[in-house]
């Protein structure tokens, strides 16, 4: 995609209602994550004078049970949530995309075996497997990304596979074969660019699911204990529901806002790519 069409696409995206709202939310979240150190009045783990203080001018979102400023924690939490979300979505794209490309391009046994494996992963209670993996092997940042990616890659594989299936018998591919272009060239240079658009939408949706899974793991106390994350804040909040509503409200709202942003962004992308909206309904299946 050349520079000018990219800008044109972006401009069209910003003209869609959903796309523009989504983009604004995501850009704001990304800025918050990058400039967390400047925005947060306190270091994330620094204890202030008051514990369990209500939201006030001094502590915008209140303080937690050991006196940490919730606003600073939420701002810093954006980093891990966005990183894990984006990282897992990209990892899923890489694994699922490769499997989908190979399965979709080759007919016969390779296709059959790969797609059975994808189906297998789709029927497994993957979330529970992820939970066990993290529980048994401990949680680090990279393991978390790998575990979340494990849960979402089949969706990506199926989508890419479907695209390749649709394209592999088209005339321009037959022409490329006749021209004796290499398999790799046909797979990546001829088909891939044509299959890419719905995949980009799926990556945005994947990232939103990844953020929710990461939050869930954090809520169970299974995320990396050294990282501030929104899910983990909710894990702590669970014990203070009767005394400190703010410990739960703000981190949860941050998760919600980010996921809404990603979904709106995906909606907008869909509208730009496929104005008839036929691909739109398939987003969450």
């Amino acid at each position: 995609m050349s520079e000018t069409t990219l800008t044109a696409h972006a401009a069209r995206l910003m003209r869609t209602r959903h796309g523009s709202i989504g983009a604004v939310i995501l850009i704001a979240m990304a800025l918050i994550a990058v400039f967390a150190g400047l925005l947060a009045p306190y270091a994330p783990l620094q204890q202030t004078a008051e514990s369990l203080a209500e939201p006030s001018a001094a502590y915008l979102f209140g303080t937690d049970n050991i006196g940490r400023d919730i606003f600073s924690l939420v701002v810093h939490g954006a980093r891990s949530s966005l990183l894990v979300g984006l990282g897992a979505a990209l990892a899923a794209l890489l694994v699922g995309g490769t499997v989908g490309i190979v399965a979709g391009y080759f007919q016969g046994p390779v296709e059959a075996v790969l797609m059975r494996i994808v189906e297998l992963f789709q029927t497994l209670p993957v979330i529970i497997l992820v939970l066990c993996a993290v529980a048994l092997f401990g949680s680090s940042f990279w393991l978390l990304i790998a575990a979340v990616a494990l849960a979402i890659w089949p969706m990506e594989a199926r989508l890419v596979y479907g695209q390749y299936l649709k394209l592999r018998d088209r005339d321009f591919i037959a022409a490329a074969r006749v021209a004796d272009l290499s398999t790799a060239h046909i797979m990546f240079r001829e088909i891939l660019p044509n299959a890419l658009q719905p995949v980009i939408v799926q990556v945005a949706l994947d990232a939103s699911i990844a953020i929710l899974i990461e939050a869930g793991l954090g809520f169970l106390g299974l995320s990396d204990p050294d990282m501030v994350s929104w899910g983990r804040l909710l894990f702590v909040a669970q014990d203070y529901m009767d005394s400190a509503w703010w410990m739960s409200l703000f981190p949860g709202a941050a998760i919600c806002l980010t996921v809404v942003g990603l979904n709106l962004f995906a909606d907008g992308l869909n509208e730009v790519i496929d104005p008839r909206g036929s691909a739109g309904a398939g987003g969450l299946q």
Binding site: A215, F219, L234, M241, S248, G252, I255, C256, N263, L264
Partner: peptide, 22 residues
Amino acid sequence: ALIAYAIPTFWLGQLFVMFFAL
């Protein structure tokens, strides 16, 4: 639906407990 779908169920649960129960 878009917003409801973005709410983690466990957080919604916490909000319900804090409001309707506590």
